[in-house]
């Protein structure tokens, strides 16, 4: 058994893993909206800041 069989099967398995990942991503609708996630990701900080603000205020109250 030559090493090339192992290498070949590994390379194909890796390729197929990525391929399956792509198919599931499409299925889950990741390609349906390509704009909103790019904006949403920028809000994560704001949300953290906001929730801490809220907690401080409630303490004061």
């Amino acid at each position: 058994m030559s090493v090339i069989y192992i290498l070949l099967s590994i390379s194909i398995i890796v390729a197929i893993v990525f391929f399956i990942a792509f198919i599931t991503a499409v299925k889950k609708g990741q390609f349906d909206d390509s704009y909103t996630p790019s904006v949403r990701m920028l809000f994560d900080d704001e949300l953290v800041k906001d929730s801490s603000n809220t907690s401080i205020k409630t303490k004061k109250d």
Binding site: A15, F19, F22, I23, V26, K27, G29, F31, D32
Partner: peptide
């Protein structure tokens, strides 16, 4: 939602 073109493109590219 018709996503068949994305599937086909993905498969052909792969």
């Amino acid at each position: 939602v018709n996503r068949s073109l994305i599937y086909k493109l993905g498969i052909a590219g792969f």
